[in-house]
Structure formats: C-alpha cells, structure tokens
C-alpha cells in the first residue's frame, strides 16, 4: 500500500472550494473544500445522506452547484455541460450499474470509445482494428473477454458493475469517479474488483465512494469522511479510524 508521505510533492488534480448546493433550502453539500492529487486514490465515506453521491453529481455536472468552484486541471467544471466535463477527462460510474442492456458487451464498450462523439463522427465511425483491439484489451481486463457478443442484460450483477468500469476505462479519464463499485458483489468478486482497481488506477486520480471498510482499507491512499455535507475528517485510514468524531457519527454504529 502506498503511504501518504510523498503526496506533498505531487500536483493537485482536483480543487473543490467552497462548494455548496442547496435543494429548496436544504444544503446537501455545505461549503465543502476537497483537494485530490494526481494519481491519488481517495475514498469518501460517511453515513447515508452525508452528501457523498451529491459531490460526485456536482463534479460530473449532473447537479449544478449553488456556489463554489470545482477546478480540474485548471478547468472550471461548474460552467461546463456534462459531455464537456467528460471531454475534460472526468469519468463517472453510477451506483446502480448503468449500462445499455439492449446492446452487446462489445457495443457497450464501443460506444464509450472516445472517437466519433458528434453526430457526423458517429455516422462515419468505423469499427477498425484500433477500436477492436482496444475493446478486446479492456474486456480482458474486466474479466469479460469471452462475453463480448452476449447482450449486456444477460450479465450477472457483478459483471454489469465491471462492464460499467470498463466503459469508463476505455474513455481513459484522468479522474475516475466510482460510486460504490463493489455494492452487491460476492466476496470473490470484491477481491477481483480490488485487484482490478489497483491496476487501473495507475496514471490517474480516483475518487471512490464506498461503505465496505475492508475494501476501503485495501485501496485508499487517503480517506475523506463527509457528514451533513461537510468534511468531518480527512487523512489516512488509520488516522480517520481513530478520530473520535468519526467514531461517533459513523464507524461507531
């Protein structure tokens, strides 16, 4: 496991400052500041309703911030549309596997391949060797190499989760956001997923929401604990675990 002592030397990839979003007066995220370094794996934990998913929604543009700033590689994301945020290098996996069930595994990955993303490009898009090679490579990585031609709705729950991770990988994002990637997985699937994440998180920053503490310990460089839309505690897993505030609101239960 990487230790945290050398993080000081790395560049910051994501700056979130003073981020607030208010739904009819309820502040789901309240004056939140969060910094993620390049190549860091950051896990966000916290009780239900702490605003974890909302933070990801804000970063990827699904929810518009009431105030505050999200800067990624120098670009202000709060002003961009969803697809522009993707083009800026942000990829996001949803909590429930969000894949195209009427299409095959191959087609699911192909659609996510970052070429021909406008109308004209999609009309003249050609499934050439480059695309095929990349799709096969990613499919092997997500343990679906032999499932390329099967319709995605025939996959198991865990395989659907992997497929969605694969759809993100083929986009090659610089910031990968995963919302509960191992939810609903069996123990062996969890282990495979942890190993997969270790491999794919090289060369990019990763932001993960997860409840499974063992899984968090396995993958996290640093952990941020959210509570009522604010950062309650932040640091290495050991530090966070021993923080009395965290024990009280979250881990103590």
């Amino acid at each position: 496991m990487t230790t945290t002592h050398n993080h000081k030397h790395k560049e910051m990839a994501l700056y979130i400052e003073g981020l607030t979003v208010s739904f009819d007066g309820f502040k789901a995220v309240n004056d939140l500041s969060l910094y993620v370094e390049e190549q860091e794996i950051r896990v966000i934990i916290g009780p239900n309703g702490a605003g974890k998913t909302t933070v990801l929604d804000l970063i990827c543009g699904r929810t518009k911030a009431t105030s505050g700033s999200i800067k990624f590689k120098g670009k202000e994301l709060t002003r961009l549309k969803e697809h522009e945020i993707v083009h800026a290098g942000v990829g996001r996996k949803f909590q429930n596997p969000s894949i195209y069930e009427d299409l095959t595994v191959f087609e699911n990955l192909e659609i996510s391949y970052p070429r021909g993303r406008n109308v004209w490009g999609a009309l003249i898009f050609r499934r050439d060797d480059e695309v095929r090679k990349k799709v096969h490579e990613i499919a092997e990585m997500i343990f679906l190499g032999d499932k390329l031609d099967s319709p995605a709705d025939l996959l198991s729950h865990g395989q659907k989760q992997w497929l969605e991770i694969g759809m993100l990988l083929i986009q090659d994002p610089e910031l990968l956001m995963l919302d509960e990637p191992v939810a609903g997985m069996s123990v062996s699937e969890r282990k495979q997923t942890a190993a997969l994440l270790q491999r794919i998180t090289k060369d990019r920053s990763v932001l993960v929401i997860e409840h499974d503490m063992q899984f968090v310990e396995d993958i996290a460089d640093r952990v941020t604990v959210l509570h009522q839309g604010k950062v309650l505690s932040e640091g290495s897993m050991e530090r966070v675990k021993s923080d009395p505030k965290v024990v009280e609101v979250y881990l103590g239960h």
């Binding site: 009427d102 299409l103 993303r117 759809m167």
Partner: peptide
C-alpha cells in the same frame, strides 16, 4: 447504436461524452 443506448439510458450516454 447510440440512439438505442439513449433510449435506454440517456444519462449514461451523456456521461460517455455525447451531447
């Protein structure tokens, strides 16, 4: 195929970088 994907999960298509 994008049309089929959109019909099913518009959001996912958006977050795959399509307008």
């Amino acid at each position: 195929r994008i049309l089929v994907a959109m019909r099913e999960r518009e959001d996912r298509v958006r977050f795959s970088g399509y307008d």
